[in-house]
């Protein structure tokens, strides 16, 4: 990491090399593994993170979430996703 990643609609977030997304059988949830840290994902966080493959932009991630959760307003989803990704980026769990 050499400079802070600021999440925008065009950025294409993904997990950094040192972080791994996997399903944890023993605890029955999705987790991100990173050095000295385990980030347990709730249902919503998993839906977001699993779409961040480095190819899709934040905009496209939001589109896809809007399709799946069509009862929730786009504004709400956009705010939630951006905040969550920025928070994860600052903790080193998401890069561009």
């Amino acid at each position: 990491m050499s400079k802070r990643f600021i999440v925008s609609a065009e950025s294409t977030p993904k997990l950094p090399r040192h972080a791994k997304l996997r399903f944890d059988k023993a605890r029955d949830k999705w987790i991100i593994l990173a050095p000295e840290r385990v980030f347990e994902l709730d249902h919503v966080a998993y839906e977001v993170i699993s779409r961040c493959d480095g190819g899709r932009s934040v905009e496209q991630v939001i589109d896809s979430l809007c399709e799946k959760f069509d009862q929730v307003g786009r504004e709400v989803i956009m705010t939630d996703v951006t905040n969550m990704l920025q928070d994860l980026a600052d903790k080193g769990f998401v890069v561009t």
């Binding site: 605890r27 000295e36 840290r37 385990v38 994902l41 709730d42 903790k91």
Partner: peptide, 14 residues
């Protein structure tokens, strides 16, 4: 210092 962070409000050990 293992830190367990959660995207949920569950307790630190599950």
């Amino acid at each position: 210092s293992d830190v367990i962070e959660q995207g949920t409000k569950a307790s630190a050990t599950v």
